[in-house]
């Protein structure tokens, strides 16, 4: 049973690491603020979530697991608020989102 938990924890950490790297690539590669926000949210949701869940499994039952899950909950609650505040500030700062070429042609 303990071996299974370890395996699951390692798998979760691996998945989290993968999505972390993908999210960071998105942050670097995508064309404008809004699309980069999508890339960052990949890191913030699945990357952070999988890593913290993996750590919680590695911690085993107890206060530590509770703390890690509390950290996960706090990140899940605060993350979208920050992202929305950023997107709203960017819209109000007159940053027009980069739209697809066909859309631009229509307008």
């Amino acid at each position: 049973m303990s071996g299974l938990t370890d395996l699951l924890s390692m798998a979760l950490l691996g998945i989290g690491t993968l999505f972390l790297l993908i999210g960071a690539t998105g942050l670097l590669r995508l064309p404008d603020v809004f699309t980069r926000l999508h890339g960052a949210s990949v890191t913030d949701t699945l990357g952070a979530g999988a890593i913290l869940l993996g750590l919680a499994l590695a911690a085993g039952w107890g206060l530590l697991m509770g703390k890690i899950l509390a950290l996960l909950l706090i990140m899940a609650l605060l993350g979208p608020s920050t992202a929305h505040a950023l997107a709203r500030a960017a819209t109000h700062g007159f940053r027009k989102p980069w739209l697809h070429e066909t859309d631009k042609a229509e307008k």
């Binding site: 999508h38 899940a76 997107a87 819209t91």
Partner: peptide, 26 residues
């Protein structure tokens, strides 16, 4: 609703008004 939209990658709520949510979708 707006927070769920933002939490889901690929969509971000830009502005929330009384009757609609402005969303940027990838």
């Amino acid at each position: 609703y707006a927070n769920s939209i933002t939490l889901t990658p690929g969509t971000i709520s830009l502005d929330v008004s009384e009757d609609a949510i402005e969303v940027h979708a990838l």
